[in-house]
Design a protein around this nucleic acid. Structure first.
Length: 442
DNA sequence: TCTGGGGTCCTAGACCTT
DNA sequence: TCTGAAGGTCTAGGACCC
């Protein structure tokens, strides 16, 4: 999908169409998740600090991501892909590999191109958004083709033309070559894919190590046999928070770690999983990051067990100077808690009050805070009189709403008291009229 | 410029077992 | 019994990806 989050927001909010839109974290330490093509003109790009984006494009619309909304669109698109083949490998909400041959949807150049053209039309019809398609004989090349196809295009890499196409490209084009490896290669005088081939496999292994060296050399020769794998199982579950200002108070750090542990377990349980290895992640004031992990005797999904493990790990971490990020993760996953009978028994004892004296501390997040209704910029609302709209901004007791829907003209703005009883939060509206949402072909 | 959140994979050393 | 090779597991860190 092209500039997915930003495009979804533009489709949902007519007044933003054709305008620079930046989606990402709005806090002082936020980064850009997606910039609309209009915003990219100003030099705004993914992963850029929000502060920098605001300097480059002060008049862009800045929005927080609405993952639930994007997920619902993503599911529609993935559904279209699964009609082409059972072998669909999602990479993220907005990207996936499809093995067209396995699905019988394509067997040669012409049929593949046809499938791609039709897919793009279907995506457009079902979601109202544009997607780009790259067609090639391997994952690596399909990915490169789709990059070239963006925005709103289709690119085929014809069999036999791969090496010539790849040769002059930057090493950074190849999957697995990021900033560090790119620098490493550059220092060795290797800038292009052709120069990787010239350097030879042994030299690459010497430079980058076994796995990476062999892998990259194969990629440079356009050799990529990786299969499209549907339904990859998760290997870890983690949550992390970056704080607006560094935390110095050790007690506060401990409380945050407990909160994160609870959230992590919620996600773990939600997925019907348990895990054996607990990981604590700490990013310090100077951005240095360290992890500490502990492997239990068996998998657990018990919040108390994960919380205690995380706190034990924290004891071995020096946080003087302050902490900017904390994270808790669980890996070594198993389906549910099959072999955790001992821990379960221990947990039951705890619940019966046999163990653990003096643990009357309420977990932080349980303490109900009396929140006034919060109007989140970018989120949908409904007003009793004016209908559906979205929050453009709020502050000092007022909230500004723009009244428009995906199929309306750009709407006008009104301001209300944050207490206005006529105003309520609302779900995002579908981008395309539900009726003809799925064009079925004869 | 000052760096999110959720993941995956690889490496390498320590330690243990065979 | 000693020694070494080989392999597994645990831990920490780094690179990369979207």
């Amino acid at each position: 999908m092209d500039a997915f989050y930003a495009s979804a927001e533009q489709a949902s909010k007519p007044s933003l169409r054709g305008k620079a839109v930046v989606v990402g974290g709005l806090g002082p330490r936020g980064v850009v998740a997606t910039a609309s093509y209009e915003a990219r003109v100003f030099g705004v790009n993914s992963a850029m600090p929000m502060a920098q984006a605001r300097r480059l494009a002060p008049n862009a619309a800045y929005l927080v991501p609405r993952f639930g909304f994007y997920r619902s669109i993503s599911e529609q698109v993935m559904g279209l892909l699964r009609e082409l083949s059972p072998l669909v490998e999602p990479l993220s909400l907005d990207e996936a590999f499809v093995d067209l041959e396995a699905g019988g949807a394509a067997w040669d150049d012409a049929s593949a191109r046809l499938a791609g053209v039709k897919l793009r039309a279907d995506i457009r019809a079902v979601t109202g958004l544009t997607g780009s398609v790259g067609l090639a004989a391997s994952k690596m090349l399909a990915k490169i083709a789709s990059e070239q196809a963006k925005p709103d295009g289709l690119v085929v890499i014809e069999p036999g033309t791969e090496r010539a196409l790849l040769g002059p490209m930057s090493v950074r084009t190849l999957p697995g070559v990021g900033p560090a490896t790119g620098d490493h290669l550059r220092r060795a005088g290797i800038h292009t894919v052709d120069e990787i081939v010239e350097a030879g496999e042994d030299e690459l292994v010497r430079l980058l190590g076994k796995a990476h060296g062999h892998g990259l050399y194969a990629m440079a020769l356009a050799r990529d046999e990786r299969a499209v794998v549907a339904e990859r199982e998760a290997k870890s579950v983690s949550v992390e928070d970056t704080y607006d200002v560094d935390i110095h108070d050790r007690v506060r750090v401990g409380l945050e770690v407990q909160r994160l542990a609870e959230r992590c377990v919620q996600r773990l349980r939600g997925a019907g999983l348990s895990g054996r290895t607990i990981v604590l992640k700490v990013r310090r004031y100077d951005f240095s990051t360290l992890t500490r992990s502990e492997t239990l005797r068996g998998p657990t999904d018990d919040p108390a067990v994960v919380r205690e493990a995380a706190l034990r790990l924290l004891e071995g971490v020096d946080s003087t100077g302050g902490v900017r990020l904390l994270g808790v993760g669980v890996s070594g996953l198993a389906d549910f808690t099959q072999e955790d009978l001992f821990a379960q028994a221990a947990g039951e004892r705890v619940e019966q009050g046999v163990e653990e004296v003096g643990d009357d501390e309420t977990p932080v997040e349980e303490r109900e805070v009396v929140v006034e209704r919060r109007w989140v910029a970018g989120h949908d609302v409904r007003h009793a009189e004016y209908g559906h709209g979205w929050v453009q901004g709020s502050g000092v007791g007022r909230v500004t709403v723009r009244f428009e829907t995906p199929d309306s003209l750009p709407g006008r703005v009104r301001t209300f008291s944050v207490e206005d009883p006529a105003l309520e939060t609302a779900e995002p509206l579908p981008l395309v009229e539900a009726s003809g949402s799925h064009p079925h072909h004869p």
